[in-house]
Simulated scan of single mutants.
Amino acid sequence: MKKPAYILLAVLFACVAVVSSVLVDGNPYWILLLIVSVPGFLISVVLACTTGSKDGDIPFVGY
């Protein structure tokens, strides 16, 4: 995936986390969505930061 895709994915996870944290007062099951979205946000941010600036893709490390 390219760098803009990771940034958009991080924004999506952040929005889901904010909405679920607001709605957790009404229904406690929203905490499950919050538990899933926070690590997804962090992983997306790390992957967006590690992408190369030249081609905008994560460098292949190898097997």
Rank of each mutant, 00 (worst) to 15 (best):
M1S: 12
M1F: 15
K2A: 09
K3Y: 03
A5C: 07
I7M: 11
L8K: 15
L9M: 15
A10F: 02
L12S: 09
L12Y: 06
A14C: 15
C15T: 13
V18A: 12
V18E: 02
V19C: 09
S20G: 04
S20R: 00
S21W: 02
S21M: 13
V22Y: 06
L23H: 11
L23G: 10
L23Y: 07
V24S: 05
V24P: 01
D25K: 12
D25A: 15
D25V: 12
N27Y: 05
P28M: 08
Y29K: 15
Y29N: 09
Y29Q: 11
Y29F: 15
W30K: 01
I31A: 06
I31M: 07
L32I: 15
L33R: 11
V36P: 00
V36G: 04
V36N: 06
V36F: 03
S37Y: 01
S37A: 11
S37T: 03
S37C: 08
S37H: 03
P39K: 01
P39D: 01
G40H: 13
G40P: 06
G40Q: 04
I43S: 10
S44W: 00
S44V: 04
S44T: 01
V46A: 10
L47C: 06
A48L: 08
A48F: 08
C49A: 07
C49Y: 12
C49R: 08
T50V: 06
T51G: 06
G52P: 01
S53N: 11
S53Y: 11
K54R: 13
K54F: 04
D55K: 03
D55H: 12
D55F: 13
G56P: 01
G56T: 05
G56H: 02
G56N: 09
I58L: 09
P59Y: 03
P59R: 09
F60E: 13
F60T: 02
F60Y: 08
V61Y: 10
V61Q: 12
G62S: 14
G62L: 04
G62I: 02
Y63D: 11
Y63G: 08
Y63L: 07
Y63C: 14
